[in-house]
Nucleic acid binder design. Structure first.
Lengths: 206, 206, 206, 206
DNA sequence: AATGAATGAGTCTTCATTCAT
DNA sequence: CATGAATGAAGACTCATTCAT
């Protein structure tokens, strides 16, 4: 099925923003990659680059959510536990990272948190991260995990993954992403103690 | 003491890069903020913006190292343990973050990993991260910690902190940074098991 | 009565051209203000912006003519003289000017003489100004005034009013328009001498 | 003497703005006509087109002032009266108008009152017009004219000339400008009565 | 008649950099 | 060392217009 101009722009922009960051990706870059005329972009995105960035971030975020869903589904199908789903997810991201010709940055961060502070972008990024955490919790519930524990794991995983995306770019390979898997595995054996679960500052923002 | 033009440029650039990222910070921005003439910059940094970015990243990185040294020194002076130093460091960064009028990004990442992939920048970023890890190990040794464990802790802290810097910008407060403290505290009670220590992919790059 | 799309476009365009001038008013501005779709405009005005400008100028001009007719009618009804009608007209325009939120420019000039020289526009403007003068003469005849004198008065009023529209915009109030009334009043007492009446260069173009 | 880039830009812009109006004159037009690089313009006029417009309007206004001074000087040298100076001025402008390949608009109006209302432009235009009136009064004093009468004549001449510039463009020749001379000549024989002198609304703004 | 997607030349402005003084 | 003029490619965005539906 031939992609619509709108969809095409979103996908091309999402990719470019992940590869080069929002600020370093020009409208012309996007137009060239999408093989689309200048005016078309502003027809579909009257707010220009910023509108497009929001749409692109949502698209990238959706891809992450689908990846997550798929990995936990795989764990369920294979009679694995929740922690297996986590490992699948991390490995999947690591594989994707290594497969990229140009190592991409964390999708939301590269698209929305890449330049001068922008309140609209900040809010959007915040809500996308919340979506991720909520989806993570939903998956945990399906495995019968305690919500507190899953929330803690989600926060930890988010911090580690965002960091890993940065460090992976610096070292040029997916090693740091796989490290996240190793670190997350600890929790599988030694459950985090109660204080950690409840003290987390970010718990308030859920 | 009146700062030299060179130092002034580096410090101003370092700040702007942290606030807005490399790509979104223009030479003019820097020149205006530094109250310096156009030609001066190219006198001190013949390689232009890229030269300046390398210098700025090193400067920012140096600040992080000094913060680290200071925190562990404080732990030693107060007869605290290594883990106390870690907590001091995290809290110090959280305080700095909250004190900022414009929430800054992770210094190295904002300066060197913010745009299209650039091998010179990547290498510089990698080596700065290595410096951080080595400094961390050096501090650990002073406390009599096993190198393997400290290396593991350093990797974990680096991933978490880089991630926290991103998420903190998204939520608009230092909560995620403080969460790193909570997560790091686990290791204080339940030592990571041996396999984690040796399996870490990033161990190779040290 | 619901205005037709055509009429609506003409009126909206006429207003915008008077407020911002032809060159500074974009098709999009007009479409937005008229709440009309892009293609509709080119259906009704195949010649595009220029077609629309001609129609808008004629519309604005018609409004001026109606104002003129009304003012002289009022003078006749109240048993006033021709000069009273002139004063009514000037005061009416002054009132309209002060009532505008955005002080408008002279309608014909703002619409047709606002940009690079354009022969079609010039001709249209010229003929609209001739229409004004002829209507003025027609009104004068009704009051039994000598044609030469009325033509002279019309030329003088036209020059003064066009100038007043410009200066009124500059000072931000209708004062200069009311000044025209004061200047025109002179002729009421001291008839212009014969040479003035016949020497006028613009007489040729009538 | 080779004109400086700054002066050159001002003069070229002033001419283009008079010919095509501010809105219809693009930066590229100006750059091409001035044979200057894009960046240079923004070096000398950081505020861009608007800065340039202010400078251009002042330049054009200065030319008018010099023309005025010259004409009254000519009248004095030839033992003429103030009214002769007025006629010289009008004829001079008529000659200039006819000499133009592309009939220009009133300099201040075309440059500053040509588009959407702009308070900075409006203020500048107002003050330039005040300058003209003051210069006119200064000249009148030199001829021993009563200030009230000269102020009245200045206001009248300004309104007529601004209007004539518009109508001259419409008819395509300087006839309307010469008409101003004829109209102004009235005052030479029949002094305006006292009420006119004092009632003028614009008197307040002097 | 009306709609809105598409087009690409055009808008103003900023960019990083060079260079003569 | 410092200054600021010059450069022109590139930046984001708007323009008037066309056209298939």
């Amino acid at each position: 099925m031939p992609r619509s101009t709108y969809e095409n722009l979103v996908m091309v922009a999402a990719t470019l923003f992940r590869q080069q960051g929002y600020s370093a990706s020009s409208i012309s870059d996007i137009l060239t990659a999408a093989d689309t005329a200048k005016g078309s972009l502003y027809h579909h995105f009257p707010g220009g680059k910023q509108d497009l960035a929001i749409a692109a971030a949502r698209h990238s975020s959706q891809c992450v959510l689908e990846l997550m869903t798929g990995c936990f589904e795989r764990a369920r199908i294979g009679n694995g536990c929740f922690y297996d789903g986590v490992q699948y997810l991390i490995e999947e991201i690591a594989l994707l990272f290594d497969a990229m010709e140009s190592h991409e940055l964390s999708p939301v961060s590269a698209t929305l948190l890449n330049g001068a502070s922008n309140e609209a972008f900040r809010k959007e990024a915040e809500s996308l991260f919340v979506e991720w955490k909520e989806a993570f919790i939903t998956e945990g519930k399906r495995f019968g995990m305690a919500v507190d524990i899953v929330r803690y794991l989600g926060n930890k995983l988010l911090l580690l993954m965002e960091g890993a995306w940065v460090i992976a770019r610096a070292v040029g390979h997916a090693g740091p992403i796989r490290d996240v898997g190793i670190i997350m595995r600890e929790d599988q054996w030694s459950n985090p103690n109660m204080s950690s679960l409840t003290l987390m500052a970010s718990a308030e923002t859920d």
